[in-house]
Design a protein around this nucleic acid. Structure first.
Length: 573
RNA sequence: GAUCUCGUAGCUCAGCCGGUAGAGCAUAACACUUUUAAUGUUGGGGUCCUGGGUUCGAGUCCCAGCGGGAUCACCA
């Protein structure tokens, strides 16, 4: 599909063909072994110059400065950029100067991958560079990369900044804005640090179904799909909690899973339809124990990503070393509104919401109303890591009743920068109580609460066989990575955030035109002239089309035979 | 879902009261053996997001659509 190639794209295709004519494969199959990379050279050359007298490296050409028979260029590999120096008579020691004059100066472009042999030296201006003695074309780039200019102070001049293009073409973004790679490197560190910590405790990483017949474990609208062979509906998981608990029933004493969850809900800078969560369940523990574990874990994550337990996020310096402040749900509301909601019934809560200017609707039960007050008045104040504990039972159908406080459950959520990043319970393992909680959820659903949880009979059966006392935790990995990398949008921590589909280019096959008698080599020309379908062509003026074909042939310097006028007229018959 | 805002060359952006489009980088040609936002000279490159409307005339004004961004709402 080569509709509307730009001038530069056409030139690059011609350069690619010319390379082939010279016997140079623009996409060679052979491996190109390297001995070093840009970062290694810059960091270690000064210390051990003898080690860099004969090196091999490979990467993309990112800038070129050609000065007659000598040239400088910058090569970018996975580790960074380094300047290279080429001298015509050194890379072409014989009379044949093709490799330099033609291949390097004419046929290579910014974005092409090349392999280099040479030695490291320091230029007169003091820049560590690679003096090239041999050069191999490794891959031709047919589309021009956006050019991002940087000066010595690192100021950026023509930045590639359009978020739409950056997210849709992340491969371009990370090529020309390599500093954004650090976010993803740190994302990997976050996950690996947590995994290493859990493994060192003896807990096991597991995988549970993503396609689920009942979407349980959380309250959210799911994505629905269909299995053909079984002829049954399936849902992409909104949570994996109930499966991990089944594994605790099965006799594992610590299981965890990093995985994608899918929720068919709104998108904004903290929500993507698919997101990564980590859930962990450890038997014979409770939520008090879990708080200490989270503190230890997050401190390790902060150290791994920022080199310190203190992380700068926006204008704040967040301290991830524990212990974190602990505040019960009721106390937090009292602290920030002065109102004691602990003894209020549903009616009392409704009037409090009204006084505070919080919108409510009739489907909301007592727990939901308290959550609304909390969300409106408390959440935004929780900047440093803070545990909110002991939630009303109505909000939390999977948590165990509080050991001493009537009407509450043993649950905490961890808030940082006003956002929830973790949620943990002493898990409910009483199968009779669990069934009643599910039934209460069904009543809420009858009142119109779309988020109420569904009954899962198989999960209840598992609990009836017996689950040991267990503490469970879920952490939103994307939001944690946002904190650890100081990013304010979820798109920046996802390689490929969800986007609306690109406007589909009107795709018409060459055959649609050749069926009219148009020679295949002229089809792209017609398309460039704006005729995207045979219908559009037929609506055109035959004489004008014939004249314009000649014009385009000249303009694009096409070396293809001009169709004669009688042939053109038959296209409109 | 609501409001505001943006969509012009490969990239970043100008474009006045409505008169058939400009710059820098990139690209092409020439020159140049240590440059580094290389430089100098000369060129080429545009469906001004799409479709309607007003007008003698629309990149510009109006309407609708598509796509992006921001804010808000929703979101255990």
């Amino acid at each position: 599909m080569s509709i509307g190639l730009s001038e530069q794209e056409i030139l690059r295709r011609e350069a690619m063909a010319e390379l082939r004519n010279l016997g140079i494969n623009p996409y060679p199959a052979e491996a190109f072994d390297v001995t070093t990379n840009a970062k290694d050279i810059k960091e270690n050359y000064e210390r051990d110059k003898t080690a860099y007298k004969n090196i091999r490296m490979a990467g993309r050409i990112m800038t070129r400065r050609i000065m007659g028979s000598a040239s400088f260029a910058e090569i970018q590999d996975a580790s960074g950029r380094i300047q290279i120096y080429l001298n015509r008579d050194e890379i072409c020691p014989t009379e044949d100067k093709t490799l330099y004059n033609t291949v390097f100066k004419k046929l290579l472009d910014i974005g092409d991958f090349i392999g280099l042999e040479g030695y490291v030296f320091t230029t007169q201006t003091g820049e560590i560079s690679v003096h090239v003695t041999n050069m191999t074309v490794l891959s031709k780039s047919l589309k021009p990369l956006p050019i991002v200019k940087r000066d010595e102070e690192g100021n950026i001049y023509d930045g590639f900044t359009d978020p739409e293009l950056r997210y849709r073409q992340r491969y371009v973004d990370l090529t020309v804005n390599p500093e954004f790679k650090d976010i993803f490197i740190n994302r990997s560190r976050v996950i690996n640090t947590m995994r290493g910590y859990f493994d060192s405790q003896g807990w096991m990483e597991v995988e549970t179904p993503i396609l689920q017949p009942v979407h349980g474990g959380a309250a959210a609208r799911p994505f629905k799909t269909h299995h053909n062979t079984l002829d049954m509906p399936l849902f992409l998981r909104i949570a994996n909690e109930l499966y991990l608990k089944r594994l605790i029933v099965a006799g594992f004493d610590g299981v965890y899973e990093f995985g994608k969850m899918f929720r068919n809900e709104g998108m904004d800078r903290t929500h993507n339809p698919e997101f990564t969560s980590m859930e962990i369940y450890v038997s014979y523990k409770d939520y008090i124990w879990m708080m200490a574990m989270v503190e230890e874990c997050l401190e390790k994550v902060a150290l791994a990503t920022n080199g310190s337990s203190k992380v700068k996020v926006g204008e704040q310096l967040i301290e991830f070393a524990g212990p974190y402040e602990k505040l019960s749900m009721y106390d937090s509301i009292k602290k920030y509104t002065g109102i004691d909601v602990s003894e209020q019934d549903e009616q009392g809560l409704r009037s409090i919401c009204k006084d505070l200017g919080i919108d409510v609707d009739p489907s909301m039960g007592r727990g939901k109303l308290i959550d609304e007050i909390f969300g409106a008045k408390v959440e935004a104040n929780l900047i440093q890591p803070t545990y909110i504990t002991d939630y009303p039972i109505e909000m939390t159908p999977l948590a165990k009743k509080h050991r001493s406080k009537e009407g509450l459950v043993e649950r905490f959520e961890l808030f940082v920068m006003g956002k929830e990043i973790a949620n943990a319970y002493s898990e409910l393992n009483d199968p009779i109580d669990q069934r009643e909680r599910f039934e209460d959820q069904l009543k809420l659903a009858d009142r119109g609460d779309e988020e109420a949880m569904a009954m899962d009979e198989d999960f209840l059966r598992a609990l009836e066989y017996g689950m040991p006392p267990t503490s469970g935790l879920g952490i939103g990995i994307d939001r944690l990575v946002m904190l650890m990398t100081n990013q304010s949008t979820i798109q920046e921590v996802l390689f490929f955030p969800q986007m609306r589909p690109e406007k589909k280019a009107k795709f018409v096959s060459i055959e649609d035109f050749t069926a009219l008698g148009v020679p295949a080599e002229w089809v792209p020309v017609l398309q460039k002239m704006g005729f995207n379908s045979p219908e559009e062509l037929k609506a055109g003026n035959p004489n004008k089309v014939f004249n314009d074909l000649g014009g385009m042939r000249k303009k694009l310097k096409l070396e293809i035979a001009m169709p004669d006028k009688d042939l053109v007229m038959t296209w409109f018959a």
